[in-house]
């Protein structure tokens, strides 16, 4: 077990998140992809805290904050999606392009 493998796994998870964020047509799946990316970040923080800062474990404290904020963000995100859904009757991201050129 090495730090690099954790970092590579986190990077892979982040990339999957980015891919899902960019390609998903469903707004809920976009929020889910954001969660994936946040979890990749959390993995990074945990790995660094374990291998580089085992005494103070500041990374783990950061992780707790990130999870908390992520929950709040998901709540707000879902609320936004709901409000858009009420107006436009869809959660298809392709339909939300009113602000083009």
């Amino acid at each position: 077990m090495q730090l690099q493998y954790f970092l590579l796994l986190a990077a892979a998870l982040f990339c999957i998140g980015v891919y899902g964020l960019v390609t998903s047509r469903n707004a809920i799946r976009v929020l889910m992809s954001i969660e994936l990316m946040l979890n990749a970040v959390n993995l990074n923080l945990m790995a660094f805290s374990n291998y580089l800062d085992p005494q103070a474990i500041r990374g783990q404290v950061f992780t707790v904050f990130v999870i908390t904020i992520a929950a709040a963000e998901a709540a707000v995100g879902l609320a936004i999606v709901l409000s858009i859904y009420r107006n436009r009757d869809t959660v298809d991201m392709e339909q939300f392009n009113m602000l083009k050129w």
């Binding site: 980015v18 964020l21 960019v22 390609t23 998903s24 976009v30 991201m93 392709e94 939300f96 392009n97 009113m98 602000l99 083009k100 050129w101």
Partner: peptide
Amino acid sequence: LKYGNSGQTQFYVLTIA
């Protein structure tokens, strides 16, 4: 070039990435 502003949030994210 204005068509670069597609109005789709995901495209902007892609650009950022």
